[in-house]
Amino acid sequence: MDRYDGFREFVLARQEALVRSAYLLTGDAHLAEDLMQSVLLKVAGHWPRLIRQGTPEAYTRKALINQYISWQRRKRRESPGADPPERGNAHDDATVDRIILRTALTRLTPRQRAVIVLRFYEDLSERETAEILGCSVGTVKSQTHHALGRLRTLAPELSELFTETEEVRR
């Protein structure tokens, strides 16, 4: 029996969803791929234990979030105050909304962005999000509240979307 039995199948089955989550965290397709490769190296190293415990999906998600937060901390130390570039093309309303949202997401703290991605994109419960982030449910609620408030400030033209999202979650 190979120590990596099932790893290839896991990657093939979950890669697309995990890369989408990585993209939502990083806002950049190339960084998302780099993040996934980095995380999958860690997952491969722990694969036999993860299979025995039955937790490869949870471990991979948590590793993805933790690696993203680590990269953001390092990035902040290296280049403080860097703003995302402005975009100047003609787009339809949905595209403009996505660009505005993506830009606003980049202005959240790494932890707030992680909470928003896990809660609203991955559609995880507060409890599941807390488990992945290694914090309490109350912290998830607080981070979600602060992140949505910050998004309303950063992208007031999308504030209706954030209000609807918060009401649906209640």
Rank of each mutant, 00 (worst) to 15 (best):
N66C: 08
R119C: 11
A90I: 04
A104Q: 09
G134Y: 01
D92A: 00
T139S: 11
A104E: 09
D123C: 14
T60K: 15
E122H: 15
T139L: 08
V96Q: 10
P80M: 03
C135L: 02
T139C: 06
E86P: 00
Q67E: 07
H91Q: 11
I132W: 07
T103M: 00
A94S: 12
R107A: 13
Q72G: 02
V96C: 04
L105Y: 09
E78D: 03
L124K: 04
D97M: 03
L64Y: 04
V137D: 09
K62F: 06
D123L: 14
L64I: 00
F120G: 03
R87E: 08
W71H: 06
R107F: 08
W71E: 04
T106V: 01
E122G: 15
A94V: 07
G134V: 02
V115H: 11
E86G: 05
S79M: 04
S136T: 15
S136E: 13
V115S: 10
D83Q: 05
Q143S: 14
E86D: 02
E122F: 14
E131S: 13
A130S: 02
R77E: 09
R102D: 05
S79E: 06
P85L: 04
C135K: 01
G134W: 03
T60R: 15
D92E: 00
G88C: 02
I65R: 14
R98F: 04
G134R: 02
V117W: 12
N89D: 04
G88L: 02
Y121F: 11
V140N: 14
Q143G: 11
L118E: 05
A94M: 08
A94L: 11
L101N: 06
S79C: 04
E126K: 09
R73A: 10
N66D: 13
G88H: 08
I116S: 05
D93L: 04
A94N: 12
V137R: 14
L101R: 09
L108V: 06
I69T: 10
R107P: 10
T60S: 15
E78A: 08
A130R: 01
A82Y: 01
V96R: 13
L105M: 13
K141L: 12
S79K: 10
E86W: 01
R119N: 10
T60G: 15
L124H: 01
R111S: 06
T139F: 08
E131V: 08
E78C: 01
F120H: 15
A90T: 06
R76L: 04
